[in-house]
Computed example of a mutant assay.
Amino acid sequence: MSDEKTKDNRRYGMVQVGIPVGSLTKPIFGRHGFAGGAMIVDWPAIVGAAVATYTLPIRVRFPPNERTGGTLEIKVANSAFATELQHLEPLILERINGYFGWAAVARLKFRHGPLPKRPAAPPPPAAQVSDRHVPALDRVEDPDLRAALERLGRHLGGKP
């Protein structure tokens, strides 16, 4: 009977990736105060892209037997931005606590150091100029305008 029950739970040998990954990462993130690691993943959405570029949450430390009034330790790329973050602390705390849904974090603690390399965004695809626009240039009577439009089309298409 237990084999039959296992098959039903596993959907004939297949398991959603999120289930085992969550059970693997929860102990690791839990040691640092991040319940499931969602705060790390959602960090740019929580604090904004500008702040997330120069920061990374490291851990949340709560008072003993409490889940409120914690201290969030943040790694900051440089001292100049750490000074800026001190001025933004009330706003950042408001956004973090809004994310949690309660007053989870009461203060921020900054640690200076290099951030791990993040994967670069892929370059935007080059615009393709279709051949259907070439006959339209034949209708342009002004030679200077036609030459300018051809150059524009080559530039947009990535052709020299």
Rank of each mutant, 00 (worst) to 15 (best):
I58W: 06
V51G: 00
A38P: 02
A35L: 12
A120W: 11
H112T: 08
A49V: 07
V76I: 14
P135T: 03
H32M: 10
V105Q: 01
L24T: 09
R132H: 14
H32F: 06
G70Y: 04
G22S: 12
D144V: 13
G113T: 03
F62A: 07
T68N: 12
L108M: 06
T68A: 12
P44D: 03
H87W: 09
T53M: 08
F29C: 02
E150L: 13
P114D: 15
V129Q: 10
R111V: 12
I58V: 15
L85S: 03
G36Y: 07
G153K: 06
F34G: 00
I40L: 11
A38W: 07
H112I: 15
H133I: 13
P125W: 12
A49R: 08
A106I: 02
N78Y: 13
P90M: 02
A147D: 15
S79M: 10
G36K: 07
I92R: 01
A77T: 11
A104D: 01
F110E: 01
M39P: 03
P143F: 10
I92N: 01
A104F: 00
N78R: 14
P20M: 02
W43I: 02
P63H: 11
T71L: 05
T53N: 09
L115Q: 11
G36S: 10
G69T: 10
R132M: 12
Y54H: 14
I96L: 01
L149M: 15
L91S: 06
A49S: 07
P90Q: 02
L137A: 00
V60I: 15
Y54C: 05
E94H: 02
S79C: 08
A106K: 04
I96D: 00
W43E: 03
L88N: 03
W102I: 03
G113S: 03
P123V: 14
P64T: 14
